[in-house]
Design a protein around this nucleic acid. Sequence first.
RNA 1: GUGGCUAUAGUUUAGUGGUAAAACUCGGGUUUGUGGUACCUGCGUCGAGAGUUCGAUUCUCUCUAGCCACCCCA
Length: 467
Amino acid sequence: MPKAKKIVDKEKNVSKKVVKKIKIEKQKDEPLVLQNLRGMKDVLPQDQAYWEQARRVAERLARDYGFSRIDVPLLEFSNLFTRNIGGGTDIVEKEMYSFVTRGGDKVSLRPEMTAGICRSFIQHGMHTLSRPVKLFSIGPVYRYDRPQEGRYREHYQANFDAFGEDDPILDAQMIQMAHRLTHCLGLKSIQIQVNSIGCGVCKKDYNNLLVSYLESKKTKLCQDCKRRLEINPLRVLDCKEDKCSQVAATAPQAVDHLCEDCRVHFKTLLEYLDELDLPYTINPRLVRGLDYYTKTVFEIWSGSEEGKKYSLGGGGRYDKLVKIMGGEDTPAIGFAVGLERVIAEMKRVQAKSYKPMKPRVFLAQLGGLAKKKSLRLFSELEKNGILTAESFGRGSLKSQLKIANRLGVELTLILGQKETLDGTVIIKNMTTGVQETVSMEKLVDIIKKKLKTDNVIVYHNHEESLI
RNA sequence: GUGGCUAUAGUUUAGUGGUAAAACUCGGGUUUGUGGUACCUGCGUCGAGAGUUCGAUUCUCUCUAGCCACCCCA
């Protein structure tokens, strides 16, 4: 096949592909870099207990609050995000992982979950389901951001969305659930920040009001804020510069400029929250980064006293999003929590994590014949619910006992040449060192009895409580 | 995306312009069928690349990554 000719023939269409191909070829020659990509992190075995805990709690709460699990692709058409999250936001402007597929589709790794879930909601006609439609998902999202602790390019979110109900009681329940989540994970000093940024109408009105106010005080603002004024005036209220916060202090607040409907909605929400005894504070400056939010917005902070406030998760209403995307007019509210951040917090406060089961029995084998037999015996024990450790690859009994000791098992079974021929097994008590020989048939029963009389835990208990 | 600090075995840390140390961990062993000790032994292209130099892990530059602040957000 004359490659050169092919390229000439399709010159314009193919040139991009050729470039791509060359890049891939080039990469092949580069040395293998044994390092994860920037902002990507391995979840190592020693951390899995925390992850397990976080996932379990999220999944259980989702179930208890009536959410059904949904999983949507990591990859969607780029404009699903650019159109709905908001063109002016950082997420869309510079933090998306976007590329063109071989088929020419412009696609992006999801920078958040809600857009994909809304797409799925509309696509599958879920508005016909009994309302509210509550959906729960957990998985990675991607943002091409500069990494820092608690900020990764790939991070996991547990995401809750409820469609088709605009009653603020749902907002309250969502916030309650968010609080329960942190509580169940053993996190202390949690703060809930709530605010209302108004509906499509009053949100815009307020924005204009704020801009004209800030314009009038422009000279008193810091450099950054002058820039913010153009892009996202609400952010000025957040500035830490003294002179800016002075200006912000007297600035008009969104809460005071809500339309009647939004005002009542927010007031009712607060009444519900009072009823729930949640540690919430109204934060008139709370703004969220995505354009689609309306009315209620909230964040969960881990408030380390006067120290840094750290956002673990956040959410809010997006009553117009489904309609904007082309679905039935459906009010909705969502909440997402960042698992890495929650886990970092669990570690910080030394919350107890789920402890995986440890084997209490070790199986040691000696000699070729015994080695063969041991494989079957291991399976036999497993079928009977006896979690057994082994080190089949090791030869000497000495090294196997060393491992058994390190694992802290209570019993070690020794299967050697002699025992294999006799159809017996030696059971060694690792604390006392006493050992006895028992027949293969009775082995399982004897082990069960021994583990039980040595009191403690019922093994293979999959129903361990979460809290 | 902007600025600052950092980078030595799996981990935590020494150290030097001239063949790299310790502790812990891990693997193997101390006469071949018995474990927490002790002893012996193995494991590093000193983050990557280039430059200065007779010679660089050490000095310079670039890159990469991590952390911190900003920004933003989960």
